[in-house]
Design a protein around this nucleic acid. Sequence first.
RNA 1: CGAGACGUAGCGCAGUGGUAGCGCGUCUGCUUUGGGAGCAGAAGGUCGCGUGUUCAAAUCACGCCGUCUCGACCA
Length: 464
Amino acid sequence: MRLSRYFLPVLKETPSEAKIVSHRYMLRAGLIKQASAGIYSWLPMGFKILRKLENIVHQEQQRAGHIPMLMPTLQTADLWRESGRYDAYGPEMLRMKDRHERDMLFSPTAEEMFTDVFRSNVTSYKDLPLTLYQIQWKFRDEIRPRFGVMRGREFFMKDGYNFDLTKEDALHAYNRHLVSYLRTYERMGLQAIPMRADSGPIGGDYTHEFLVLAETGESEVFYDSQITDLTFGDREIDYDDVAQCQAVLEEFTSRYARTDETHVEDEFTAQVPEDRRRVARGIEVGQIFYFGTQYSDKMGAMVTDENGVRVPVHMGSHGIGVSRLLGAIIEASHDDKGIIWPEGVTPFHCGIVNLKPGVAEADEACDALYKSITALGLEPLLDDRKDSAGAKFATMDLIGLPWRITVGPRGLKNGVVEVTCRRTGESEEMTPEMAVGKIARIYGPHVGADLTQPMPQRAFHTWM
RNA sequence: CGAGACGUAGCGCAGUGGUAGCGCGUCUGCUUUGGGAGCAGAAGGUCGCGUGUUCAAAUCACGCCGUCUCGACCA
């Protein structure tokens, strides 16, 4: 993309309503514009990042064998009356009437919808296990939205629902989600720690929240410092291997890690040596639940087991706050000049700054770099505007592309361009060909090779 | 929802009863160009909305709406 043809309304000054760094930088970098309290328009570059995050979530969910679909945002009250949540939910649920005076709502979550789809189509244990999910806009009418997209009213969220014959099977689904979530966050350049969480009104003993450590986090967290040494890396995972998924869960959840909701100081001090005890703040970016037959009982989601007995299915639900992740990533990765995007989610893979647009050799060198990088399957952002060097660098630093190639007559005279790492600020001069090679090597692990396959041994009879 | 603050140009702000301002940004032209350049010119405002007080309201009073902060609540 050429900046002269893009739409990137950056701000030099910070709008006064933005209090935390991610909100300030999202506004200044031209990612979002507030439409009303807790509701945002996604400007082109913000939308691009949102789509990147969405794609990563899709890929990792499908790799785990989970099946994507899409539910309506506007739903009638009927199903919600069936589960009892229409009355239980309170004013957080945005309610409205259609022209026929029917009670409608903007979905804040979708247990009822998914359970209804399941019960209408699945009747035998042979069709299990099954995990359906969506990535869709949700609405919760928060009393006081704040912190930009970190706590909006409208938010983009992945929500998935597993349907299993037994509790053991459902717990495997729980583990599978934990593993896939660890992979997902790590691809986004985040370390998200699974912490024992409060199940809240949804009930059930099995629930973990995933928290990204950040000073501005909404939750206080207590953990064993050994946890932050754990990484998922590129280990091979067979999502159908029950023991393997269980082992990962144990590896990542055996040490003390809790939010303030479940923290018990005595257990903390008993289990963790003093030099490894950490108290910090965290941003919640996901949560997994096993809740048993709560919804299947109420809504009649039953299957016939191998003895011919109709039994309610065991369920769980699992969420990732996709729009919130933009804020979380920025909170975890920025400096005083702006955002620093991890390579896995950056809106453009590298910036090319033409210091002298209009000068033939600079224009030609930039065009050649642009074409070579595009040919690698990568997207460069070329700043070809006639503006001062300082202004261009400031914009590039603000929007946070992890790599920048600076092209000017001074360097070209010696046959070199400058490659700068946004994170470290280190620059290196090299030929344009070497610069392209460097960018190619950096992004090698992040492009291509994203194979996704559903679980091989399951055949669902209405799945076409 | 309780308490508090604030709504004036795209953004940041000044203007406390007498013709609507400043900085940044934007646009035009020229000169510039290795870390948010210079000169000249220009565009851009129902002063959140309504009612009232007054000869006169951005300014005072009342009501409403919106936004933000702290708390409670939440992904």
